[in-house]
């Protein structure tokens, strides 16, 4: 099989007559770690949904792992924004993680290997003691970790995370960065964020989404390109210094 994880060619997407994505082409190889930046409402989440075949584009070609998104998406680990999940639904952390196993094997019930994998991922993310808690009772950071665990539960070949650092304390953000650095090279990582401190040295490439998609080499991501992206003067804040990160 080819080495492509995600490939978009000339994709256009509009809600009613409101264009959200225009002539978007991008290519992400297997094993690459890619960040997707952009202002709110710029189309970041829509881009992920197009990649996963949740919202089919009006025109253009989308492929995931060399196949149509509908065929390949069970091999994708997806973490939607945490706020999209319904807190009124009584589900435990373990039940949430098990959702990631749906479609991996057939059958009416979760198999022994499904349960084993879920336990593994829970332990990997330090959620073992919380697994029987209800999702609504967890803190913002714990919820986020549960959703990441769910995304990892299907042994994904592509991991797609939508705003994984929202509502997460700096400590949690650091843990996530370490986790992603560990996964890098093994599977493709697509991460949507508006948290610029997350664009670490591990990130291979950065795409900026604001209706159109522009690629920036990471070195170029300075206040000039930020200005261009957000259309207002912005200043880079070195979070890593504040947090005492080892990034220097």
């Amino acid at each position: 099989m080819g080495h492509e994880a995600v490939c978009l060619e000339g994709v256009n997407f509009a809600y009613a007559s409101w264009p959200v994505l225009e002539d978007v082409s991008l290519f992400v190889a297997r094993g690459e770690y890619v960040c997707i930046l952009g202002p709110n409402g710029g189309g970041k989440t829509t881009l992920l949904k197009v990649i996963l075949g949740i919202t089919p584009p009006q025109s253009g070609r989308v492929s995931l792992l060399g196949q149509r998104p509908e065929q390949a998406r069970v091999k994708a680990g997806y973490m939607p924004q945490a706020i999209k999940s319904d807190l009124q639904v009584p589900v435990t952390a373990k039940e949430v993680v098990l959702m990631g196993r749906l479609g991996v094997e057939g059958g009416w019930r979760y198999s022994r290997s499904d349960l084993k994998k879920a336990e593994e991922v829970l332990a990997f993310l330090g959620l073992e003691p919380l697994k029987d808690r209800f999702f609504a009772e967890l803190s913002g950071g714990q919820r986020q970790r549960t959703l990441i665990a769910r995304a990892l539960a299907c042994d994904p070949e592509v991991l797609i995370l939508d705003e994984p650092t929202a509502n997460v304390d700096p400590e949690g953000g650091k843990l996530l960065a370490e986790l992603l650095a560990e996964l890098k090279g093994k599977i493709a990582l697509l991460l949507v964020t508006h948290d610029l401190s997350f664009v670490s040295k591990h990130v291979d490439r950065v795409f900026c989404v604001n209706r159109r998609v522009v690629e920036h080499p990471t070195s170029e991501l300075d206040s000039f390109s930020l200005h261009e992206l957000y259309n207002e003067p912005m200043r880079l804040v070195r979070h890593d210094l504040v947090l005492g990160n080892e990034e220097r």
């Binding site: 994708a76 589900v91 990631g100 749906l102």
Partner: peptide, 22 residues
């Protein structure tokens, strides 16, 4: 009964359910 797991995902998080091909 047979679709309990699918229904649970559908209630909790519809876009994730779609990605699991439900």
């Amino acid at each position: 009964a047979p679709f309990y797991r699918e229904i649970l995902v559908l209630c909790f998080d519809e876009s994730f359910a779609k990605v699991r091909n439900i």
